[in-house]
Amino acid sequence: MRFEIIRASLARELEEVMEDFELLRREKRRRKAKLKFFCLDVPNVPDFNKEGLADGFDVNNSCYPSRLVKSTWGDDYDIALYGKLGLHCHNFQKGTNFKFVRWEKFSVISTAYDYVYVTLDAKDPVSDSVFSFQTLLNEDSSSDCPVMWSTLACRIKCDDRVDDHWDDTAVDDFYKGAMPKWLSDEELARDNKKYYVVLTAPPPLEIENVVVVTKEDTDEGHEKLKAQNSIYYVIYKYNGESSEWARDHKAIIRKTMDGKPGHMYLEVVAED
């Protein structure tokens, strides 16, 4: 009698497994039919798991089927800006002086935010060589901080996996929360270890005044510009062709780093 009960129980379990298998097979058929209906059926999906192809940069695996990211050599300003930000982060962390030449291709992977994978040509002025460079950037905006850029990778082209997790616990609370307000005249004129005034003039912008605020202990004033975590108060003037912008402007820039290679977070608030 006990043997019959066990056998019956096993038969029911096997029957449930077969039902699940049949449901799964039907679901696969349904998905395949749907793909064919929308002309998305690819009978021979290419294998992109090859050496030298980087996920996100060379292959977009966020869609089905995966697709190669094609070189377009475009002139989109935003993509060029993202590439330059990645080069800036690399130069800052590695002590290099790489220059932006042009971008080759990009792909966008959207989750809660947009992650932009950019491949570009960069130039090393020391060796006068041009090489392929990769940078991953996340852009976000909100009412209290119109522009927020997170550089999560900046490297000479390779197929290594990207560590795109930002470690917020590694950043001092001094640099978190809402963006600070513009400094008062007294604070701008203050001369102590937190503040350093710089005058530069790169066209078409004329930088009239920069005040750097940082908690990092640096003895020399110019070393504050090399702080990994800092807040910049910038007064600048536009000297370009558009007369509409030809006046004094203010900007607050907060830069933080979590200690990981290729990671840099910029928050920018501009004022007229």
Rank of each mutant, 00 (worst) to 15 (best):
L120K: 03
D160H: 05
H165E: 05
G74W: 06
L35M: 09
P125T: 02
F38D: 04
K99N: 11
A33H: 13
Y77L: 12
K123Y: 00
K36Q: 14
S129T: 14
F37M: 14
Q93W: 00
V130H: 04
S141K: 10
S62A: 14
P65T: 07
C89V: 15
S142G: 13
C63S: 14
C158M: 04
V126Q: 13
L120G: 02
M148Q: 14
T135M: 05
K157C: 00
R25I: 01
K105L: 10
F92Y: 07
D121Q: 14
N60M: 00
R26F: 03
E27L: 14
L152W: 13
A112V: 14
L40E: 10
E51F: 07
D173V: 13
R31Q: 13
G56Q: 03
Y64F: 15
R161D: 11
L87Q: 10
A170R: 12
Q134E: 09
A80C: 04
F48W: 14
D173Y: 07
V59P: 04
V59E: 03
D41L: 08
K70E: 15
M148L: 11
W149M: 15
V147E: 04
D121N: 10
Y117Q: 02
K50G: 08
D114T: 04
V147A: 06
V42I: 04
D168A: 08
D163L: 08
R29H: 11
R155A: 07
V162P: 00
D160L: 12
